[in-house]
Design a protein around this nucleic acid. Sequence first.
DNA 1: TCTGGGGTCCTAGGACCC
DNA 2: TCTGGGGTCCTAGGACCC
Length: 360
Amino acid sequence: MPDNRIILHVDMDYFFAQCEERERPELKGRPVVICVYSGRGGDSGAVSTSNYEARKFGIRAGIPISRAKKMNPDAVFLPVNMELYRSISDEVMEILRGFSDKVEQESIDEAFCDITGKVADFDEAKKLAAKIKDAIRQNVGLTCSVGVAPNKLVAKIASDFRKPDGLTVVKPEEIRQFLEPLKVTDLIGVGKKTGERLNELGINTIGDMSTLSTETLICEFGQAKGAWLKQASQGIDDSPVREREGTEQIGKITTLKEDTKDLKVILATIDKLTEEVFRKLESRKLSFRSVTFIGISTDFKTHTKSNTLGAPANDADTIRRVAHELAKDFLAEHPSTLRRVGVKVADLTGEKAQRTLGEF
DNA sequence: TCTGGGGTCCTAGGACCC
DNA sequence: TCTGGGGTCCTAGGACCC
C-alpha cells in the first residue's frame, strides 16, 4: 500500500512580503523586507521575510535588520502585520479545501492536500495543481509554488524545487533520480546539526545517504532517526495527510528592554505575556493543563521550567500564578541574566473539558 | 554584525505504580 | 543479600520548521 497516493504541497511565495505587495501595489518591483523589531530601539531585531528583489542583495530571513539596512538602505522595511497575513492565509486555505477534502495546514503559508481518488494519474494531478494555482492567483492575488508527488516528503521538496510560481511533479519512478543530487539538508527534518554530522561521514547528497546501511545510520543517529533517514533518502514516507485539530500549545515570548535578573521586571513581563496568552486561549475556548516559563539568557541559550496541573484550567490567574512560581525557581537555580522571557500553555483541550476544578 | 517570535516533535532520565 | 520488568507520566532540553 505504500505510495499509490497523490499528494500536493502548496507553498506561498515569500508570503509576508507578497501580502504587503498585494495591499500596496506601489511596492511591486522594489526590495521589500519584513522585520521583527525587538523593541530595544533603533534597528534592533531580525528579518522575517524578504521578497526576491531584496534577496538579490543578500537580505534573507534571520539576519539582523541593521545588517540588512547596510546591504540595501533603499529597500522598503516594514514591520510584520500578522493580522493581515493570517486573514490572507485563511483565504488561501479556504480555496484549497474547495479542491480537496483532506487538507493539512502545515504553517501560515503551507499546506498538503491528498488528492488521491480525485485524479486518475500524475498528468491529471498536474492539471489540477495548475488549476489551484490559478484559483489562488485570481481570488487571492498571490502566487505560490506547488509540488506533486506520491508522498509528503517528496511533495514538499518538489514545491521548493522551482520558485517562485513553480509547479514540479515527481512521479514514483522519478523519485530516485530527483533526490539523488540534492543536499541532505534539502530533506525536511535534516537541519544544520544533522547535516554537519553527515558531512563529517562524507555524506553530502541524498544519493550518498541512500548508500549507507540502516544499521550505520541507526548507530550514528539512534533507532528512530536512523531508520527514518534511510527511508527518507529513498524517498519513502508513509505519513498521512491529516487534518489538524488546531494548536497544541499557545505561547508568547518577548525581548526585554535590557538584559536582567531582576525578579520584579521579569514578573511584570510575565503578567503582560499572560494577558496575551489568555486572550488567545479564551478566543479559542481552550483549557490548558501545563504552564511553561521560558528564559533565554544573554548567551542565547533557551531554558524552560514547566508544571503540569492536576486538572485542566482555563483562567488567566492560574497561568500567572504558576509562571511566577516557575520564574522564581528558575532565578534561584540559575545565576544567568535573561534577554528574553516567555510564557506558554500546553496540553490544550476543547470546550467539553472541565472548568477549573478550583484549588489544588 | 548582532542576533524575532511562533510552533512541532522527539529523547532521556527520574518518579511512581503494578 | 541480592534482587525483575513493563508501563505511564512528568520535566528539561534539543533539533527542526516557517
